[in-house]
Design a protein around this nucleic acid. Sequence first.
DNA 1: TGTTCTTACGTCAACGTTGACGTAAGAAGG
DNA 2: CCTTCTTACGTCAACGTTGACGTAAGAACA
Lengths: 332, 332
Amino acid sequence: MKDVAQLAGVSVKTVSRVVNGEPGASAVVRERVLRAAERLDYRHNLGASTLRRKDARSGIVGALLQDVGNSFSAGLLRALEDTLRPSGLSVLAASLDEEPERERDIVSDLVARRADGLVLMPASHRHEYLLSERRAGLPLVFVDRRPHGVDCDSVTIDNHLGADLATAHLIAGGHRRIAMLSDLHEIETAQERIAGYRAALDKAHLRFDPELLVHSVRSEDEAARVIAGLLGTADPPTAFVTGRNIITIGAVRALRAADVSRTVALVGFDDFPLADLIEPALTVIRQDVRRIGTEVGRILLDRLAGDSSPPQHVVLEPTLVRRGSGEIPPPA
Amino acid sequence: MKDVAQLAGVSVKTVSRVVNGEPGASAVVRERVLRAAERLDYRHNLGASTLRRKDARSGIVGALLQDVGNSFSAGLLRALEDTLRPSGLSVLAASLDEEPERERDIVSDLVARRADGLVLMPASHRHEYLLSERRAGLPLVFVDRRPHGVDCDSVTIDNHLGADLATAHLIAGGHRRIAMLSDLHEIETAQERIAGYRAALDKAHLRFDPELLVHSVRSEDEAARVIAGLLGTADPPTAFVTGRNIITIGAVRALRAADVSRTVALVGFDDFPLADLIEPALTVIRQDVRRIGTEVGRILLDRLAGDSSPPQHVVLEPTLVRRGSGEIPPPA
DNA sequence: TGTTCTTACGTCAACGTTGACGTAAGAAGG
DNA sequence: CCTTCTTACGTCAACGTTGACGTAAGAACA
């Protein structure tokens, strides 16, 4: 900036004015400054700028997601980006892979970077460590999972309802032995889905069989193995509810492998691209990822605009999408 | 920092030493400083730190991708993140949606943020605007598309080969009327794939029929419409090559709708989750997304470590994955 | 014993920028 | 004509941090 000022024959402050489009610089000077900046390949230093400015917005929002490579996190990231960029915010994305330690590290990095806000799909279960950031006024929006120990905004879906819908749908179709495969038990979302499953059984006065509930299924392969095992029992389930997209995929593979994909029913949690094209088309509980991301972005923007009302907890309702796999009747 | 220093009864410089883990602070003082920092909720200001430091690494790498929500960009982003984070780099991701203007805006934003490097899947066709950044030493790695007008590293796949493989595979299967649907014609990648398609036809001495080549297909729906149209002609194609994942999906839908998914062959460019589960399973040209991302990350890290050798142009070979849809023979 | 080295600090300026404030010259107003 | 206002600048300090350098006290050594 000093060099530009010298070349243009003005003071640094005038260069600053021109660069920031502030008034107080004549057209002639403005032109001269811009040419000098051009000649010297001058680039504004945003870091120095935000350091000096009072309102000091870094223009960065951190998005700590489960895995930016999977369709749920990726879709969320995209919706978030679309909502925030028009306001000049950039999104710094990170994958947590359910590792609480990573979460802490990345949060502290983002705090050190003076991120304007944080979107968190937490890997940890307790969030007291965020209290001081909240006190300092850092906007914080939880997504997909609720905050525990810190009072902040969140956007989640009604997991209980989703699993209930899935299970009840199968029951309505005549099934009485319905197995459920669920994600890591430490994840609250997974627990809620299990609760929804059990609630649907209860409502229908069906006995809960612990054999039919397998939790902490962590991979496609594991899901496939579990299903193969269940199918091999004396009194196998006639339908499955799968608690997460990768589990659903593992389930499809296992049902195919056992050649029962047209005779055993399946309702998956989470929709994904092509779910309607596989055979039979997958009946799923869909969460509107785009909507979730947009809500998160909106809340964040409101907070940044100064909204200091009490934390909101937006709970979106998932919907049942009937496509075939969930409408297979039990054997007569 | 000043406050921490005062509370701990030391100078700011000592606080700085403790915060940065530099030697020259006794255990007692260190402890006192840390406690004071804790008490005051002190957070290190990375912006100020990098401003002052000589080597001034911001720790940010920009990733300008086509759409962080689609599986290709998302997978790339994830691989990139995994490669860069161990070196303390965070990834700032952005979607370009094939809009050159966005690309410029975001690049200039990242330059102003003093990003340590840029990963670019460009929407623009000429890249001279990056010359000054390169001169300034900004590491720049193009991915999926080659740079034009700026000399920098790139990681691409051999698109010509990929389309050639796909087409030749269909020809070897007996097909003689093979249609190709391709992405936006301005995208070089799309042009290369068309060239590969034509080369395969030439090698087999098959006449190129312009009616069978449709470019600038931009959406799933458009792909479906185009295919429906082609199937309705007097001498319809017996096989399709689709130049991109969303086109492939549109094609699957159209073939299903016309009830010819088991009689018309299809080879898609780009693999995606579940491609093996649809019926018939999709034969595709697969690019190893993980590998691409890892290569990009590696090059970037090398450059940041001081490697100033001439730009590398890594070209990875895509592979044909036979699953069924591409092995359907032409009607007798 | 004096000399040199080491350790553990402190002081000060600078990184690139902008807010607060000052000022000179011309315009506007009486 | 003088006064006041406006415009177009310039000066200076400060944002939070760290590099360069200084120094006092004790350790090590001859």
